[in-house]
Design a protein around this nucleic acid. Sequence first.
DNA 1: TCATTAAACGCGT
DNA 2: ACGCGTTTAATGA
Length: 226
Amino acid sequence: MATDKKEMVRSLIWAKELGEPELEIAAKGLSERFYPKNSYICHRGDRLDSWTGVVTGLVKMSAVSLSGKATTFVGVGAGGWLGEGSMLKNEERKYDLVALRDTRLLMMNKATFMALCENSVGFNRFLVRQLNERLGQFVAITEHDRSFDAKARVARNLSWLCNPVLSPQVGGVLEITQEEVGLLAGISRQVANRCLKELADEGLIDLQPGAIRPLDLEALSNYGSG
DNA sequence: TCATTAAACGCGT
DNA sequence: ACGCGTTTAATGA
């Protein structure tokens, strides 16, 4: 096997939990794919039988609430992984996946994913941590879904993109345009611009061209819930 | 009305 | 070329 691929696998968020033979298995089951801006990675209802990691770019998960009424969005940035729920439950996707900009993905085929699940304690440890973080997001979504405050959605999405487990390679500054913020929060560019300016006035973020520096992650993630 | 939207334009990088 | 701020006109509550 090519050593550069093994090195690449070593840099993934869950790799440090794995031993050498497990890394070997993982590397064999991974392939890279490119999705141009605005392209769909999968539609709701599809059986995409791969666990998916974001190498570069930005992916939007759009989930529809149980009532089928409100749709909410979660961004996944570079280094983040998604789809483990659909893998584990062997069911179709409950959400759309869209590349918000040119995006490179790593796909792990299902057999490899299941093999790691069954044989690697470290891999399971990572999955539990990941699922726990996601659970926190969806709890937060149901909390402030009833008061659809655009600013609160923007604030939460920004804080989520800084989550070190779910978007590990996103560092101190978010390289994200205001248009992309709008897409993630389900609002237009104008409203995104207004919300960001208000958040900046409140001292929670620092606005730069093409980038946002969060100043108070705690306040952002709790925005709207007192 | 009032808020929101897409489209367009201009500005600065 | 791109991100951003603003204006405009259309739409809908």
